[in-house]
Design a protein around this nucleic acid. Structure first.
Lengths: 146, 146
DNA sequence: CTGTATCCCTCTGGATACTG
DNA sequence: CAGTATCCAGAGGGATACAG
């Protein structure tokens, strides 16, 4: 029966959620998704990962010019944190002037694929979301008139 | 040849990245992934979506007690923003005392599935990441000693 | 060229008190 | 019960100057 299949799916999902939440929805839990999200939930990490994904090796200033609007400081900070998690590798050439090349590690490329999947979903559903926002804005206006 | 296949994959990925970045990595661009991420990149949205995903309908205080550590204010703010994007629906029963039930919309359930996929990746790779962090910490220590 | 250091401002989010 | 309003501390991040 259809219902059973749907119910089973639902059960599977709930099991997964329980695992992700580790039983409790604690902020400081072992929850790996929160840990991962902390790494690209900030302002520049996604752009950095995507931009690094477009090429094999990129130098610092090259990267900076490709990511519009990022400050020198924040690019450094972002790259360091990605490097710390093994998502990005940093190759320093002891020359003068110094040359440093950044690239995605295999781990970083794996995350990139996940991000692209998320982007696929986003593109498919962005219209629905924008529509919902308009509806919400209209409803808010009406409430304020009363 | 293997190489060709790999190259083709790489080309596909680069195309996708270009689309996501809309040509330029501009912060205020049309980039849908950034828009989506802005919705669950904050402190409480993920927990809220996951917790809502575990049941069909949940009342406000019930939700508050299930999400450990969230303040009343932030739960309200989070729910409102999710509602605004059509990810969560809010059903008010005009009773005394008031009763309000929250639930995921189909759109929200779609996002939940994406999050669970991300969680799968996270769980598979969290060990590698933790290992990378340890290595990085050791390297930092050595640098500081010099 | 590739950073680091400092200052400073904004925005997020927590605590608390009040309301329909 | 389910919020809203207000205040405030701390983190995130931009601008700028300096350094190896």
């Amino acid at each position: 029966m259809e219902v059973t299949i749907v119910d089973n799916q639902q059960l599977e999902i709930q099991k997964k959620i329980d695992k992700v939440l580790c039983g409790k929805a604690e902020v400081e839990s072992c929850c790996p998704i929160k840990d991962i999200l902390a790494r690209f939930g900030d302002k520049w990490s996604i752009y950095t990962i995507l931009t690094l994904g477009k090429q094999e090796k990129v130098r610092f200033n090259e990267l900076k010019s490709q990511i519009t609007g990022v400050s020198q400081r924040m690019l450094t900070v972002t790259l360091r944190s990605l490097e710390e998690d093994g998502l990005v590798s940093r190759q320093v050439y002891p020359e003068i002037p110094p040359r440093v090349e950044y690239s995605l590690t295999p781990l970083g490329q794996g995350l990139l694929l996940q991000l692209l999947q998320l982007a696929d979903w986003a593109k498919l559903n962005i219209d629905q979301i924008l529509e919902a926002r308009e509806k919400y804005a209209k409803k808010e206006k009406q409430v304020q008139l009363t």
